[in-house]
Amino acid sequence: MGDGPPSLWEWFGRNWDTGRADSIRNLLTDHITMSVVPIVLALVVALPLGLACARWRWLYQPTSGLMNVVYALPSLPVFMLMISVTGLSQTTVIVPLAFYGAAVLIPAVVDGLDAVPDHVRQSAVAMGFTPLRRLLAVELPLAAPVVLAGLRVVAVSSISLVSVGALIGQGGLGGLFTRAYQNPFMPPVIVGIALIIALALIADALLVLAQRLLTPWVRARKGTS
């Protein structure tokens, strides 16, 4: 132990794995859970809704209107409202974030399906695809680039938004920021920001990788035109 306040690294090392719920390691795990689960949920909700909107066009206007309203709601009061339903649990953060994600992804699914050229769809019909198989083997793969682009936005914004949950005691790494209120001590804030940025970059990189693996033809197209 030195005399003055600990350095950044010292503080990090001492708090990484204290065995307590608020060790950096536990906060990081919580943060990952509370951001990855809503991303997956958002996709699970947005795919069928987006498909429905693309299929029954009259659904799209009201759905996207509603989703825009959801997206406009500030996160903190929504978290607070959720407490009355789900208590002070991770679910309180996860559910609203899933809705925010869906609000971004539904239009992405619809736009992605709209981008499937009509002659490609027609020729799939003419080749003898059943409607379900056409959706799975032709339309969804062709919509994938637009959906994945939306997913990148959702991933980064979810990872960053989780920290707001710290104000209701469920914010993952956001917990490191609230401490700075009580005690103007910088290392937790810097560690929190750095880890959140690192998480966002890793998530984005993984999605870019997924894009390359799932949609190799997109690069082929860019290569020639």
Binding site: H119, S123, A126, G128, T130, V138, L142, W217
Partner: peptide
């Protein structure tokens, strides 16, 4: 219809190839 169509070749104007395949 799908069974019928698999037994009939079809060629259209812009070829209608699947860009992802």
């Amino acid at each position: 219809p799908p069974t019928l169509r698999r037994g009939i070749g079809y060629v259209i104007q812009q070829a209608g190839l699947f860009p992802h395949r």
